[in-house]
Design a protein around this nucleic acid. Sequence first.
RNA 1: GGCUAGGUGGCAGAGUGGUGAUGCAGCGGCCUGCAAAGCCGUCAAUACCGGUUCGAUUCCGGUCCUAGCCUCCA
Length: 458
Amino acid sequence: MPIHIYNTATRKKEEFVPADPARVTLYVCGPTVYSFPHIGNARPAVVFDVLYRLLMQGYEGVLYVRNITDVDDKINAAALGEKVSIGEISGRYTGAYHQNMADLGVLPPVIEPKVTEHMEQIIDMIARLVTAGNAYEAEGHVLFHVPSYPGYGALSGRNLKELFAGARVEVAPFKRDDRDFVLWKPSSEDQPAWDSPWGAGRPGWHIECSTMIEQHLGETIDIHGGGQDLVFPHHENERAQSTCLHGGKLFSKYWMHNGFINVDREKMSKSLGNVLLVQDLLEQAPGEAIRFALLSTHYRSPLDWTDEVLSQSCRNLDRLYAVLQKLQDVDVSLSACDIPDTFLDALKDDLNTPAAITELHSLAKQEKTVSSQDARAALKRQLLAAGKILGILQQDPVAWFQGAADINDAEIHKLLEQRAGAKRAKDYKQADEIREKLTNMGIQIQDRSDGTSSWRKV
RNA sequence: GGCUAGGUGGCAGAGUGGUGAUGCAGCGGCCUGCAAAGCCGUCAAUACCGGUUCGAUUCCGGUCCUAGCCUCCA
């Protein structure tokens, strides 16, 4: 079964056919590094990470580029506020992003370009747009002239008239058209600046992505991804710039956009004070559970984040890891053909991760009925191979339940032994006291029928 | 106001023109010294109103509701 993906540009599910199967190109808009990553930053990273893993399953070469926007007025504001350089701000939050994404099991992209490393090419691209007649200089700014591109609005489903009528913002007087947007803007003394033919300044937001895509992936790419809010104006503008420069050549074959995350039914925003940082959620639950929660809803649907969603994800993973623990006696080595077709088909259907998770549960259920060692090994291979595509279930089940390198290990075992002794002596009062004590330590005892016990953290 | 997406059991969440998955929670049972875990069983939903159809949750129209974008927010 071929991969089908929903293309924002056509509003339809389409069969995915890459331009070159040996070199599939995927570009996803990465973070602007001006603060710690929140759960909304994590969603596209995780969603497109699964897409990346799925593509690697079917194609030899997948060139995945996710940028870091390290030039932005929000970074400038943060730097001014702290009286440090913009490099210090962007460096700090790039590091936090890398750390958090690793905690969520997100693979690094093949290339992670930064705006500051592409200033020369950005300036060159703007100059080419001016030469081509699609952009003009005005009072130290360079602006893209929207009416110069008749296809403008096609991606986001807006026509030029509507945009004109809908203009509610005060328009800079030097704009030839209300909809024209900035490619380059002049910097004041306290703002970072690069030399350009139009004076010292800095690039606008949209041109950065166009430049990095051209530089690293070429004129036409297979898939362009990002959050739903980026459709307009960011991606519309990228598309206008790149298409104009490349003689009308298709910019991206497919556009994919993930939905937003709400927090307790409300939009997550700084003004509401309900922004959930990834680092704070990691205090609440393992990264794998956060990842699972992000994948438990289809990527295009809005996701309402609550404590309940997170704890249900933990319990789902508990269940799956419990099955893997039962299969611990069989050794397996994985190969791609171990991924069950039903599971793969779910993902190939526009990344239907909830349906894929259902297949995982269905596999887990089979553990109760298979008996031969061969069948158990096959089942374990299927579970692990499928889990790997979703980026879950890859750790040792014991590590999942008990946490890594527990310093209290010796004490726990001592208490367990004392309790076992008390049970043998039928001193249930003492046995229950010890169990109570362990419970208070966050340890849950699981008795086996043979009189021994295991434990897990709760 | 314009554009877009969506409204499925207590919660989460797929799918489908022909008796509505899956997980969590609940309930009953087995197991247990008692629990927990596990196992077996079980309750429970397609916003509303029309239309097309032998048949609609699914397709079409309307109503109501929700979310997003139109403001350099993932």
